[in-house]
Amino acid sequence: MSALVLALRNAPAQRVDVGSLNPTALAGLSLADIAALTLSVGKRTVRVDDLFELSGDDSSDVVFRGDCSKLERIGAGMKSGRVTVDGDAGAYVGQGLLGGDIVVKGSAGAFCGTGMKRGRIEVTGDVADFAGAAIPGDMKGMAGGLLLVGGNAGERLGDRMRRGQILVSGNAGDYCGARMIAGTIAVAGKVGAYPGYLMKRGTLILNALPAQMLPGVVDCGSHRLGFLSLLYASWKGLPGPFGALDASACTVRRYMGDMGVSGRGELLVRGG
């Protein structure tokens, strides 16, 4: 068996919803069945084989090839299996993911990992704004699982995040962890202004102070937190800097906020 490869014939001019082309939805379908499925393109529909050249037979391992930056909802809602994007992906990668792995060997568009509950998304490049955040109308963003970002994250990373972990090897933009309900976000590089805006609970782990701190986030002094050594140990072996952290280096400066809401969120700046 070889991976099911969906190679774009041409880069689409409009956004295409490819959420249905995931291992869970395609299980048991023949190549001809898959070719005959229809996808939403704006207000129209197109057949899968009008857009893609299909090859391979293992629908539990789906590979997208070509310029996929207009393909949206890649791997949405899948329960198991693997989806790989050879290059950049569009918005809503892994929306509502329930299990399995998604690997983007490039950068991903906005709302990457929104509403995911389990599983793992790895983006080797950057993620655009609102990664792990809630789509307008939804009550929560990421709700479980692991989102690994090799490059930088845009603004409002983890907005309304409810559970799960986001690890960013590069920098994160402004309003990181805004309105966060719970969960963990760690950023190895620099963080923009106002992290933790209206944050209720949850943990932000940073390597340095952000560009601008909110007045509602207050300094609670230096602490040695035992749970961090367990957390770091659980990350051991992951790609990027978090996979190689010294589990004993668990002294941090703790900030609590946002006092404008319940104030039970924490920003932990490593090194104390």
Binding site: D17, S40, G42, K43, R44, I135, G137, D138
Partner: peptide, 17 residues
């Protein structure tokens, strides 16, 4: 909005989206 984005109706020759 989730009710609407979750249930799109495409246009046809006679009906609108």
């Amino acid at each position: 909005p989730e009710d609407h984005r979750g249930d799109p109706v495409a246009r046809t020759e006679v009906t609108r989206s």
